[in-house]
Design a protein around this nucleic acid. Structure first.
Lengths: 129, 129
DNA sequence: ATGACTGCAAAGACTTTGCATCTTT
DNA sequence: AAAGATGCAAAGTCTTTGCAGTCAT
């Protein structure tokens, strides 16, 4: 079975995702890391993101304009997405979705693992333009 | 300026989306329509879906396994997505997101147009396999 | 040394688009 | 006849993957 070995680049990818509130895309991470890791490739970024998602260390916020956006904060919380500029913003929202998991389980007889609550609209900055 | 003309195929695309609870993808609509409209093309399906979304007659539920899934029911409601089989199921859920729109507006100073609440997990059918 | 990780580039998957043709008005 | 809608296929985007070389153990 495949074990895991240390990798400086993997560490850097996770770090890039976790140290920003931008909810980055793979491309964003790639561009962010290139100066410090000149040889890094997009493939490596994608491969590691994929691994982090499986491990539950990174979460997908959804697809915005064709790009998957990620969140290194795995605590359940809602997001706001600006449909003009594509910004993804955290919301300090009481755990609405969480409270409903039981209800959904009863309604569908399904096992509910996680939820995603997203509000769409025009962000403050875009409104002032 | 471009006006709109009647088109039998456009009508059929909207019909296909609205007359199912499957929350179809473009591909699904295409395959569904091909028997009755032998000449129809994927391009036409995509072009019309795009138009319906702009017109607000069809709504995107999100991207599941790389495919955008649509809903002809534009009344606000939450969804459950099975991460095993990809099924998208309507939830009769009290308008949780709607009640929070004002709160989000206050928190971000953003204009909130709509919301999307999705629960992920394993559906009843998949659990019984 | 072994086997995991990476770079590179090709391949895949979904969606968009240009252009000639067909339809609606 | 004019202009929108479509078919077809090529092009675009984002993501995945095969393979040879590199690095951690």
């Amino acid at each position: 079975m495949a074990q895991t070995r240390y990798s400086k680049k993997r560490e850097a990818v996770l770090n890039a995702i976790c140290s920003t509130k931008a909810h980055p895309s793979a491309e964003w991470v790639y561009k962010q890391l290139r100066p410090d890791y000149p040889g890094i490739s997009l493939g490596t970024v994608y491969r590691n993101i994929s691994r982090f998602k499986e491990e539950g260390r990174v979460v997908s916020v959804g697809v915005v304009n064709g790009e998957e956006r990620l969140d290194g904060c795995t605590e359940p919380h809602a997001h706001f997405i600006c449909t003009r500029c594509g910004a993804v913003i955290d919301l300090c929202e009481p755990e609405t979705g969480g409270r409903l998991i039981d209800a959904v389980h009863r309604e569908l007889g399904a096992q509910v693992d996680h939820w995603n609550l997203v509000f769409f609209g025009i962000c403050k900055d875009c409104r002032n333009c």
